[in-house]
Design a protein around this nucleic acid. Structure first.
Lengths: 338, 338
DNA sequence: CTGAAAGCGCTAACAT
DNA sequence: ATGTTAGCGCTTTCAG
């Protein structure tokens, strides 16, 4: 690795002269600047980032901790985060918590020793279930900023990026009601998560407000380890008058659609289905699944922005919570309502 | 941030005493060790990673550059890499090349300044098409080790992890031939990639060897930007005697299956389909898609292992190329052949 | 215009 | 058993 010292020795000048020259300092003669730069280029000199980080107590690196990278939502969020971070001159160090509280705590611990300037994270399921956020608060107390996205916690006083989960599910349910559906079922495999609960509330609220709707809400909560396919199959078997399905996670909607097609439901005439996901994910079904779009790219981008602002002291004192809009995208598994 | 200096001042000892005490040095009295450790714990001291990296000229960080994180194969590889790296005490910095040569070169450049000890990467499509690997060779010449996986290049002399693409496609085609298929079509949207070409060769070779097979090979290469759905629809329209399909990328098989079902093909009696992907990805179709499994987790794990070995000088002088086994997983879109 | 020196936080060889 | 010093690569103040 080529260092300033190497350049200095070659040119018979001091290290500080080289450093200044490379920064176009006024103190250095144009002639010297040119010679230094020429040699630097020739030897492919690159300033050692670690040394600069140490000097500046700033790494220009963001720690990103996500629960599960195989979940398309998080993969896409990570994509957006990487993109925006790179645009802002930051690298990202990625850790996967695998939904485990312990791994999450370890990652936080591991990186909070000067490796990163701040964190962007979405809370592990176990952390949410047990409401154990001490490890996260410990980081905040060290004045290392954190931006939470999607899965957040009220116990944590930091910047957050969320979507209007309640409103999104409310709107989707409303749409099915306007279609005239009488037996609307909600399916969820994320009832343990804050976002899952909010979406369920939105569904319940919509049904409640629609006073012509006389049937009880039907909620299918699929636990970890249970088979989505079996639960869905059971639904169709025991409740064949179902005419509307809202899936509030990003897979069960597809499973329900496939099952319904196999059972020869006429979609959307006889049964409407709405999924919950990112814009383009679920459209490869046939018929294309109608979905509540989460605008994942915006979520990731905004998270980076909030963190960068915080790191540059461009943020207000109190924490900011950004809500990213959702969209109900009506494709082929819902009826048109005018 | 708490430093050794802080601890030293509090305890009225020197910095080096503190350092040694924390490392259980024999030179230090048990009593002092205890006092130092107690205070360190109390103040939640964590050694500054940046300083250690600078001191050791070693970051314990791996740069991972992947072409596209939204491709499930790469997401899963990244997952495996992160997991194994973490197990070995390494962090990973992730960059996404977006299939672009320039972004790939930038990421390499950006991180090769001491930020990482080595790289794990899969080459961007543009890089493969244009055979422009100078930027990668430049890194190798600086003695920064690189492990390539999946998409590799013969121009690069470094450790590699690949699968037997040729053999895998060969075996899959063979299976369809044993089923007695007479009109076997190959679909690919990755003809630009080395792995795509190898898989196609395997298909051709199998047909060629099977001398009872009289029909010409039919290869559908889907270019970037073309619609897979349309090309597949066109296939069924113009070649309705098709009775076997091999998809060598990880999406077109699903599309073909959906289309065939819609056209009321009887699967697998009338038409067999084999996809190419990771073990568990494509099984959510109904009927479950038979696939060539790539054992992505093993690929990622092995890549880390090769790099770590190289970094610890545990590798042979000449470069090692590991081939990860594939599996033909026969599920419900192929017939049983005894 | 150029150079010497200090310091970021840590380790390790070398005193005492 | 403890302390001093030097150095990793860089920037920056202060001196010449």
């Amino acid at each position: 690795m080529v260092t300033l010292k190497h350049l200095a020795e070659q040119l018979n000048v001091s290290v500080s002269t080289v450093s200044k020259a490379l920064h176009d300092s006024e103190e250095i003669s144009p002639d010297t600047i040119e010679r230094v730069k020429a040699l630097a280029k020739y030897l492919n000199y690159k300033p050692n980032k670690v040394a600069i980080s140490l000097k500046n107590s700033k790494t220009n690196t963001i720690g990103v901790i996500i629960p599960n990278i195989l979940n398309h939502f998080f993969a896409k969020a990570l994509y957006a985060i990487e993109k925006q971070a790179s645009k802002q001159g930051y690298s990202i160090i990625t850790c996967v918590s695998n939904e485990q509280n312990l791994k999450e705590a370890n990652s936080l611990q591991l990186l909070s020793n000067g490796s990163v300037d701040g964190f962007i994270m979405s809370i592990a399921e176990e952390t949410q279930l047990k409401q154990q956020t001490d490890h996260i608060n410990a980081i905040l107390q060290q004045n290392i900023p954190i931006v939470l996205f999607d899965r957040v916690s009220d116990d944590l006083d930091c910047d957050k990026v969320i979507i209007d989960d309640f409103g999104a599910a409310y709107e989707a349910t409303k749409h099915l009601l306007l279609e005239g559906r009488k037996h609307i079922v909600l399916i969820s495999d994320i009832d343990g998560l804050s976002v899952g609960k909010l979406r369920t509330s939105g569904y319940l609220k919509a049904l409640e407000e629609h006073f012509e709707y006389n049937n009880k809400p039907v909620i299918i909560n699929i636990e970890k380890g249970e088979s989505i396919e079996e639960r869905v199959a059971y639904l169709f078997k025991t409740y064949n008058s179902v005419d509307g399905i809202i899936s509030v996670d990003n897979t069960s909607g597809v499973v329900a659609l496939q099952k319904a097609l196999k059972l020869n439901y006429n979609i959307p005439e006889q049964l409407s289905i709405i999924g919950f996901s990112d814009e383009n994910v679920l459209q490869f079904t046939d018929p294309k699944l109608s979905t509540i779009s989460q605008h994942t790219l915006d979520i990731g981008k905004e998270a980076v922005q909030l963190l960068v602002n915080r790191l540059s002291n461009n943020s207000p004192d109190n924490k900011v919570i950004t809500t990213i809009k959702t969209n109900l995208i009506l494709r082929e598994t819902t009826k048109i309502v005018k």
